[in-house]
Simulated scan of single mutants.
Amino acid sequence: MTSLLRPDFATASAALVGNAQRQNLARLHTWLVDEVGLLPGETVLAVSNYQEGSFGRLPNHVVLVTDQRIAFTHDGGLRSIPLSQIDATRVGLRTGLVNGELTLLTTGGEALRFKKGVSLAIQEVAEYTIHGAAASVPVPAPDRPLPRAPRRSTEPSSQGAGQDSVTGTTDQLVRAHVPGAQVLRVEHSGSDHFAVFEVTEAGDQGELLVNVVGRYSGTLVCGQQGPLAGFEVSASGPWSLTLVPWGDVPRWRGHERGTDSGVLVLPAPAQGLVSATITYRGFDHLAVTAHGADWDLLVNHVGAYRGQVRIPPGTEYLVVDTTGPWEAVLD
């Protein structure tokens, strides 16, 4: 079947090794080329199969990513979305030995889910999509400096009872007054898509904080763009949200490990030349940002990573945004 495919299709679909997968791709190939309307010089980079719906359908739909867009067949036909409309920082990827699931979020807030694709193929689609989306939209500077976190004592607060926690098992609007930057602990033990949005004081949907498929246990910072009225949770499994006072967040003493997002609070604002070595052993997107009076993007990478980064003077805490095992060591 490979000889029937356009050369870039043949290379991009190398991970689809099953006879049924190859036959299905060959069947859709010409239609895809015509309907997607590939431009001269546009190259197909990765192709995967996936399943639409929960029951009764085989994973015989196709999702492909080029150097300009992502396109996919579905029960209603075909969609094509420019990479510039994909949020490169919010990608959910869950892989196993055989199958994988990928969740993307458009800049308009729409979630795109591709499940039961061949694990290696779906990873390649994720990687090229993230790289392409990140390259097509440069990281903008904030319109105004992000709010400083409240000044914190060097010792944990004794007010552990002050932590506010809410649990649920399905979609829910959580009302909570968040006056500014605050630490949020998020847990999810379900197997399906899970997302958490901020809700602004005006009642509008704010920043997307979590967007994953499957289990998640991470710590992040919410309210960095201003006060919040609460959170909007999209889920179909057990979850919890816990607002943690800054004084209850453990201080980063020089060596920290995690498996999902984390917040590393320095004992005191960074002074002089300070560096750290960041190691990541996962397959997803890794972003590390430094926060103080302003913020800096220290790491923006897809896949395994190890590197030394400079922590800007005045940094009060780092935020590690990812899904997968990571380690941060002060040099």
Rank of each mutant, 00 (worst) to 15 (best):
A88E: 10
Q85L: 09
L112C: 11
A88H: 12
R94S: 14
F114A: 10
G96Q: 01
A121P: 07
R79G: 00
G100A: 08
I81H: 02
A121M: 08
N99S: 14
L105S: 11
F114S: 10
S119H: 01
I86G: 04
L97E: 12
E110R: 14
R113F: 09
L105Q: 12
T107V: 14
L93A: 04
S119E: 02
G100T: 05
I81W: 05
R113W: 02
D87E: 15
S84C: 07
L105D: 03
L102Q: 04
S84T: 13
S80A: 15
V91N: 01
L97D: 10
T107S: 07
R79C: 04
S84E: 12
L102P: 05
L112G: 10
A88M: 02
K116E: 09
R94W: 00
L112E: 10
V98I: 11
E101T: 15
L97I: 12
T95H: 03
L93N: 01
T95W: 02
Q85S: 11
L102A: 02
E110H: 14
R94Q: 13
L104I: 03
A111C: 03
P82I: 13
K115M: 10
T89E: 13
G100W: 01
T89C: 06
P82Q: 06
G117E: 07
G117F: 09
L112Q: 07
G109I: 12
G108K: 13
S80V: 15
L105T: 12
R113G: 08
T95K: 03
R113M: 08
S84R: 09
I81R: 01
T106I: 10
R79M: 09
L102S: 02
N99F: 06
Q85M: 08
G117W: 08
K115Q: 14
A121T: 10
I86N: 03
T106V: 11
L102H: 06
L104W: 04
T103C: 05
L104M: 07
L104K: 05
T95V: 14
K116S: 13
R94M: 06
G108I: 05
F114E: 05
S119D: 06
A111M: 06
S80R: 15
E110P: 00
L120E: 11
I81Y: 04
L83S: 05
I86H: 02
E110S: 08
T103M: 14
V98H: 05
S119P: 01
L112N: 09
E110G: 00
L102D: 03
L120S: 10
G108D: 15
S84F: 00
D87Y: 11
A111T: 14
A88F: 10
L83H: 01
R94F: 00
G96S: 15
G100L: 04
G100M: 04
L120F: 00
K115L: 07
R94T: 09
E101F: 05
K116C: 02
R94Y: 00
L83D: 07
Q85T: 06
S119T: 13
K115E: 14
L83K: 05
S119Q: 01
V118D: 06
A88C: 11
T107F: 08
R79N: 14
L105V: 15
E101N: 12
K115N: 07
A111D: 05
L112M: 10
R94P: 00
I86D: 02
E110L: 11
T103N: 03
